[in-house]
């Protein structure tokens, strides 16, 4: 697959640009976190497109951003479960 360039992305309508970026990101994320790939890809697509393009060019920065998203997700899930257990305790 040829690298995605800014001009290729800019040629697509805005609503399709996230889809195009997601299609590129998903397999890379799936290779690291198969069970969370859909969720993490969705989280990363919140970042603006120019930064996502840079991340696609730099495996290290993509890797660290994926791990950052996993950490945020884990904190969120722990706070959810602690809220649930607290609410069931009352």
């Amino acid at each position: 697959q040829e690298p995605l360039t800014a001009s290729m992305l800019a040629a697509a309508p805005p609503q399709e640009q996230k889809q195009i970026l997601g299609e590129r990101l998903y397999p890379l994320i799936h290779a690291m976190h198969p069970f969370l790939a859909g969720k993490i890809t969705g989280m990363l697509l919140e970042i603006d497109n120019s930064e996502l393009l840079l991340m696609l060019e730099s495996p290290e920065s993509l890797h660290s951003k994926i791990e950052e998203a996993v950490a945020v997700l884990q904190v969120h899930q722990m706070s959810e479960s602690s809220h649930k257990s607290a609410s069931t305790a009352f």
């Binding site: 889809q19 997601g22 299609e23 990101l25 998903y26 397999p27 198969p34 069970f35 859909g38 969720k39 890809t41 969705g42 989280m43 990363l44 697509l45 919140e46 970042i47 603006d48 930064e51 920065s61 951003k65 950052e68 998203a69 945020v72 997700l73 904190v75 969120h76």
Partner: peptide
């Protein structure tokens, strides 16, 4: 500086590639 992942992004919709069919091992 790169954008950090915001806590709010946990509410972002999940993304699956077009034509994705979940395999039941997920």
């Amino acid at each position: 500086a790169p954008t950090s992942i915001s806590k709010l992004s946990v509410n972002a919709p999940e993304f699956y590639p077009s034509g994705y069919t979940p395999d039941f091992t997920d």
